[in-house]
Amino acid sequence: MVHEKDDETLRAGFSGEIKHRLGGETITLCYQCGTCAASCPVAKVTEKFNPRGVIKLALLGERQEVLSGSAIWLCSSCYNCQERCPQKVEIADVIYALRNIAIMSGHTPNIYSEFASGLMKEGRIVPISKFVEKKRTDYGLPPLKSAGVEAIKKILSTTGFDKIQWKKEGTP
């Protein structure tokens, strides 16, 4: 478990920290051309998110602002930017890496805690209601197979996922 480190000591090394995480490897290739922003469906409707801006902040080492803010959670993972980035920055994956670091640092939006608990309990992130399950026979659908909850639990315990402390911070 990584705890929030002193901001100053990490300022210089934030891009390095991102680069060394799965998904974050390409961040320093960014030269701020804005192709991502112009491709982004989210940036089109809200000023709260701009992929270029998120990467710029991260490259400047503004760790606290990036991790505690709402911007990184506003990427819709559509990969439009990633396809078109002329520097082959894997932008959507960089945002995953940033989200992973944010969660490890205790910044977890509510909805993600819910996804995690669904996974840990049922092996699925969307619970299945009794109503829909009963209706299956009406439509001639076979009974649902059970989910491999035990296997999932073992995987989660190996990666430390089940030990993540789900601070309920609410929507930033």
């Binding site: 192709t35 112009a38 491709s39």
Partner: peptide, 20 residues
């Protein structure tokens, strides 16, 4: 800003350049 896309609008026969 580097444009992300050029779109041809068939209605107006105009090109639209998406750019930040």
């Amino acid at each position: 800003g580097r444009p992300s896309e050029i779109v041809h609008d068939p209605e107006t026969d105009m090109l639209i350049v998406d750019v930040e």
